[in-house]
Design a binder for these strands. Structure first.
Lengths: 345, 345
DNA sequence: TCCGCTTATGGAAGCCTTTCCAATATTTAT
DNA sequence: ATAAATATTGGAAAGGCTTCCATAAGCGGA
């Protein structure tokens, strides 16, 4: 039924090995012969059978990515970077979105029991300990993205440092009463950003009032507030409202652990009649599109680069078949816009 | 090196056919035999070789989706629907994001010359005429999503009708001077939504002033304004600004062809000191997350359902190997929030 | 116990490549 | 012109699974 290399070989009057060599650009073939084969291919409308090729070469040409089902610029950019690099390698991207953490396990089980990809990108998720061994035993190259890991390759942004710099930026502008709004604390980046905030405060000799820190898990547990792991606009707004209830005691500047939280916070401030940055300075984290639109100062994460790097690294692992583990950290960059400014002016 | 069914067969003391039957749940096997095979599989740590299976069965278990590189809730929800349904069928999703239309062609070429998926979802993109024949000849099941097509299966929302109803909603509230803000006019949905708007106006005996219609392609061609095919917040804002320059002649209500445009428009209105809905009523299209947050009345598109349906349909085509072409249209739903209200109150 | 029918089992053949080795053609050096 | 070295070529074997057909085992009835 379908045209195979045997048909092509017969038509071109050569052997199947020669056809294969012609197709795969082997130098071991005379140009005339190659031309003859190519003609035959065109005449017969031959297309190679991908699965047979994959069986023979043991190379699948697919990288799988597992990631949470979150909205947002962050993942969009990350995917852009991933796609870009993958296209260069002529690999395809298999994506699997996960809404509940349990589903990660199910997917890992499936990936381990059927080899359907050459490598795996685990994005913004924590791999349960028991799977780490399994992944290593299976010799499946894995790169963890947006999370740290001590036994697997990982690529992440310097969350602690970024938060530290963001907070320092506010301090430099003369703020003393600096609050922080965060998504759910259990996530790794949330923790690290808190650390950075606290360190900057400490080093500047400022007190970190516990009531100035509000994370999504401290708010109501409605679905709206909890979506995206607490990194959402509603949480930012509600958290800010709560801070504003403190009256005179309220912070004069806010470090938000993500731009979308910052935007929610800005909204609450506006609703309360406060002007930004005069009455309240706000700095975010991410640099999403809206941040630019709303003139939000923020710490930019190199998301696109992170995606590219993740792919480059996994390809390196696939090709070198190395077991070596490397941790990468990318730096953040301050994007100064008008939501922050010299205090008291 | 790796464990094959031959190893399993030997260990279990059966033939390879029996192992295959045990694995694939064939009824043609004695329970005890099956148990013995399963034990052997566990003892040896056997995992089936996916590519060999695919070669033998000619079934790949992968659906590919091509879509533009746009941000947003729309695609997020669509993907959720796709993923959900695909998981039920135990198929994987290969995604390919495209930034420039030319790249669609490159991808189609590749898809046609190597069979790497059982079916193809083309999302929010127009397939060049010459590829339509090729796709049909290759007998690759295709479903076009978010666009209409006369020779291929397609699933789309009733854009014309949705826009008609949205406009009617404004008319019902007593508005006579209704403007429209749109993304680039060349896209199919943009055209259809304009048609619906115009029809509602016509039927109500209202004049459609040409200067009340502004689309992104009529604005500056900066990257910001042109991103996402003109469906972005900047375009909405700039378009609204322009409408407001008309002074007394300006529309009192706006139908925006997407929520994000509506949000940009609302921003411009606020900046000009106008209150919504009192000074200006705004209705959007999509029902993205922010719409709820900002209390924007909108026409909701059933994006999740669209995704599910697309997969269900493509699976149907794969299984039935039918050539039959079907067009589906999903209805929109008015979500009334506070950006629209009885006029003049 | 034997026959005929049903159910279970073994394994060759087929799916379509790539790769490797032996064989042949060509070129180079002498 | 000829041996030696090099460039091409052909095709068997391998890759691991499913499937189909022939064979064997099991079972009920006579």
């Amino acid at each position: 039924m379908s045209v195979t290399i045997y048909d092509v070989a017969r038509r071109a009057g050569v052997g199947i090995g020669t056809v294969s060599r012609a197709i795969n650009g082997s130098p071991q073939i005379r140009p005339e012969t190659k031309q003859r084969v190519m003609d035959a291919i065109r005449e017969l409308g031959y297309t190679p059978h991908t699965m047979a090729k994959r069986l023979a070469t043991k190379r699948i040409g697919i990288i799988a990515a597992i990631m949470p089902f979150y909205t947002g610029h962050f993942y969009q950019e990350l995917l852009r970077g991933i796609q870009k690099s993958l296209t260069e390698f002529e690999y395809d991207l298999l994506v699997h979105f996960v809404d509940k953490p349990e589903k990660l396990n199910a997917y890992l089980d499936r990936t381990l029991s059927e080899k359907r990809c050459d490598g795996l990108l685990v994005i913004s998720m924590d791999i349960p300990e028991e799977y780490v061994d399994q992944l290593q035993n299976a010799r499946l190259p894995v790169v963890v993205v947006d999370r740290g890991h001590d036994r697997l390759d990982c690529i992440q942004v310097e969350n602690e440092r970024g938060a530290y710099l963001a907070t320092q930026h506010l301090i430099r502008f003369g703020h003393h009463k600096i609050g922080m709004i965060s998504g759910n604390r259990h996530s790794e980046p949330a923790k690290q950003r808190y650390q950075g905030y606290a360190r900057a405060m400490r080093e500047a000799g400022l007190t970190v009032k516990p009531e100035w820190f509000i994370s999504a898990d401290m708010l109501e547990t409605t679905p709206k507030i909890q979506q995206n792991d607490g990194f959402n606009i509603h949480a930012g707004r509600v958290a800010m409202k709560r801070l504003l209830q403190m009256g005179e005691e309220r912070p004069t500047a806010i470090f938000a652990a993500s731009d979308i939280l910052a935007i929610g916070a800005m909204r609450a401030a506006n609703e309360a009649g406060l002007r930004i940055p005069d009455d309240l300075a706000v700095i975010g984290f991410d640099d999403i599109e809206l941040a630019d639109y709303l003139s939000l100062t923020t710490m930019q994460q190199p998301m696109y680069e992170m995606g590219k790097m993740a792919v480059d690294r996994i390809m390196e692992k696939i090709e070198a078949e190395t077991e070596e583990v490397r941790q990468f950290r990318l730096t953040t960059r301050l994007i100064e816009r008008s939501s922050t400014r010299q205090a008291g002016r």
